[in-house]
Simulated assay, not measured.
Amino acid sequence: MRTVHLIEAPSNLGLQELIPGVPPAVDRLPGWLQQWGFYDLLSPRHVHSVSPPPYAREVDPVGVRNADAISHYSQQLGACITQVITQPGFAVVLGGDCSILLGIALGLKAAGTYGLFFLDGHTDYATPERSATGGAAGMDLALVTGSGPAKLSNLDGQSPYIQPRHAWSVGNRDADEADVAALQASPIQYVDLAALRQQGPAAWAAAFLTDMAQQQLDGFWIHFDVDVLADELMPAVDSPQPGGLTYTELTALLLPLLHSGHAVGLDITILDPSLDPTGAITRRFVEALSPLMAALACE
């Protein structure tokens, strides 16, 4: 049975406020998932918590909201990730928003050379110039692969934390043409929702595993932004959009990756408890993830 290391990373620093003067509530996600039984699925041997600095509204001169706080927090989270990832087991990181990926990737870089399976309903490949919000949560894929302000993309002089050719962007259905064009022009493997469905989730999972094996990496990380799910299943997100994956498709995509033995960790981001006041959405989410979390125990 595989040891699960659970890391709480309740940062909301990478988002713009949905309501002026009210900080985003994604920082409540770890406690919310625990309330609805997710921790019971994992039975973690260790629970670590990395607390972020307070949320602020300022946009840094580099064009990113809370840039200094995110930089500091990413280094703290990165140190925790490195400590955990060098031990036997599997790491599960609960955000928070997608900017936690910076700390995760920084920690992975210190431990070896890792791939990234980036599962997200958006490209998250914006730059400060193309971003409408200045939120790092919309730039995280670009930042971890070496694009964007050095204050965030080159922490500790380690840019890129993930080599672009080692990253796959999967499941996007964002219509932002500029971000999509920039991503397609990069070495990152791009599989949008339409392509994912055309060939099928299991086929793309197999292709990713083959690619990772050919590149002889130390393993790979799975980033799971819940807004990749169908809007009717997961409306409790800050940037909802029509369409998205079903839970059946999600399972078909992730189960082979978890069974491969080469995935070293998974992060879950963006589910906003304030947008699910009854817990019905989260309860269904936890139930749907049960077979995926059970796969961890089999490794």
Rank of each mutant, 00 (worst) to 15 (best):
residue 16 Q to L: 15
residue 298 C to P: 07
residue 247 Y to T: 04
residue 26 V to G: 07
residue 277 P to R: 14
residue 193 L to H: 03
residue 133 T to M: 05
residue 55 Y to C: 06
residue 279 G to S: 09
residue 260 S to M: 13
residue 1 M to F: 10
residue 79 A to I: 00
residue 133 T to W: 05
residue 194 A to H: 09
residue 164 P to G: 00
residue 292 L to I: 02
residue 148 G to W: 01
residue 31 G to V: 00
residue 229 L to T: 12
residue 16 Q to C: 14
residue 155 L to N: 06
residue 125 Y to I: 11
residue 31 G to Q: 00
residue 60 D to E: 06
residue 45 R to P: 08
residue 104 I to H: 01
residue 115 G to F: 04
residue 38 F to M: 15
residue 45 R to K: 14
residue 298 C to A: 15
residue 154 N to I: 03
residue 184 Q to P: 11
residue 236 A to K: 07
residue 223 H to C: 05
residue 285 F to R: 10
residue 255 L to Q: 11
residue 123 T to V: 13
residue 137 A to G: 15
residue 78 G to H: 05
residue 81 I to D: 02
residue 181 A to P: 03
residue 286 V to N: 01
residue 171 G to K: 08
residue 12 N to M: 07
residue 54 P to N: 14
residue 71 S to E: 08
residue 196 L to N: 06
residue 33 L to N: 03
residue 134 G to Y: 05
residue 37 G to Y: 10
residue 50 V to L: 01
residue 108 L to R: 03
residue 44 P to E: 12
residue 169 S to K: 07
residue 206 A to Y: 12
residue 54 P to T: 14
residue 122 H to N: 08
residue 170 V to I: 14
residue 154 N to S: 02
residue 90 F to V: 12
residue 191 V to S: 09
residue 120 D to M: 14
residue 129 E to I: 09
residue 49 S to V: 03
residue 60 D to T: 12
residue 60 D to S: 10
residue 215 Q to C: 02
residue 263 A to T: 06
residue 122 H to G: 06
residue 177 E to Q: 13
residue 164 P to E: 02
residue 289 L to R: 04
residue 295 A to Q: 08
residue 8 E to I: 00
residue 85 I to Y: 02
residue 28 R to M: 10
residue 39 Y to C: 13
residue 77 L to A: 02
residue 37 G to S: 07
residue 35 Q to P: 09
residue 215 Q to P: 08
residue 285 F to V: 11
residue 13 L to D: 02
residue 15 L to A: 08
residue 64 V to M: 05
residue 168 W to Q: 07
residue 47 V to T: 13
residue 52 P to E: 01
residue 90 F to W: 09
residue 44 P to G: 13
residue 28 R to T: 11
residue 263 A to N: 05
residue 41 L to N: 06
residue 275 L to R: 13
residue 140 D to H: 10
residue 49 S to G: 07
residue 279 G to R: 08
residue 105 A to T: 03
residue 246 T to M: 03
residue 233 L to F: 04
residue 57 R to Q: 13
residue 214 Q to C: 13
residue 278 T to S: 15
residue 47 V to D: 00
residue 86 T to D: 10
residue 216 Q to W: 11
residue 111 A to N: 01
residue 228 V to I: 12
residue 238 D to R: 15
residue 56 A to G: 15
residue 184 Q to C: 15
residue 93 V to Y: 00
residue 185 A to W: 02
residue 58 E to P: 07
residue 196 L to D: 04
residue 291 P to F: 01
residue 56 A to H: 13
residue 272 D to S: 15
residue 9 A to S: 01
